[in-house]
């Protein structure tokens, strides 16, 4: 094995290679790798954020849907109640109207009957008086017998 100045030549070559690598090869490559790592990390973080946002939005949408459904049900409920109420009210009013009309009819009939009764009574009284006159053959002093007539009429 012969050692010789190849050793020195190789030392110089080694030093130059390492220097060149340190100066011109390693930094740009490492910078690019680190830059890409950062980009990928950012991308991953962004996608994670987006996933979280999506979840949030979905939860919100579900909530809103539920709320809307509840509201719709409430409105429907109210409408039904209102409708029932209206029907009830109308029915009651109808009943009342009917009662009123019937009562009016009764009152009118009653009044008519009273009037007819009075009429009849008067006619019967007149008939009775004229009958009595015929029987007695003379004039009855209506004035004088008035109380009797009155009594008669009242009895009818």
């Amino acid at each position: 094995m012969n050692m010789n100045s190849t050793l020195i030549g190789q030392l110089i070559a080694f030093a130059v290679f390492v220097w060149f690598c340190m100066k011109y090869v390693w930094p740009p490559l490492m910078a690019a790798i680190e830059e890409r790592q950062k980009i990928i990390a950012d991308g991953l973080a962004a996608s994670e954020r987006a996933t979280k946002d999506l979840e949030l939005a979905q939860a919100k949408a579900t909530d809103q849907l539920k709320e809307a459904k509840a509201q719709a049900a409430e409105i429907l409920d109210q409408a039904k109640k209102r409708a029932n109420q209206l029907v009830d009210e109308e029915t009651q009013r109808g009943h009342a109207e009917r009662e009123k009309i019937i009562a009016q009819g009764y009152a009118e009939i009653e009044a008519e009957r009273n009037r007819v009764k009075e009429d009849l009574r008067k006619q019967v009284a007149a008939l009775a008086i004229s009958g009595a006159e015929k029987i007695l053959g003379r004039e009855i002093d209506a004035q004088a017998q008035n109380d009797i007539v009155e009594k008669l009429v009242a009895e009818l």
Binding site: M1, M3, T6, L7, G9, Q10, L11, A13, F14, A15
Partner: peptide, 10 residues
């Protein structure tokens, strides 16, 4: 050996 020793000495 010149080369490996040069590396090692570096």
């Amino acid at each position: 050996l010149n080369l490996t020793l040069a590396l090692a000495l570096g």
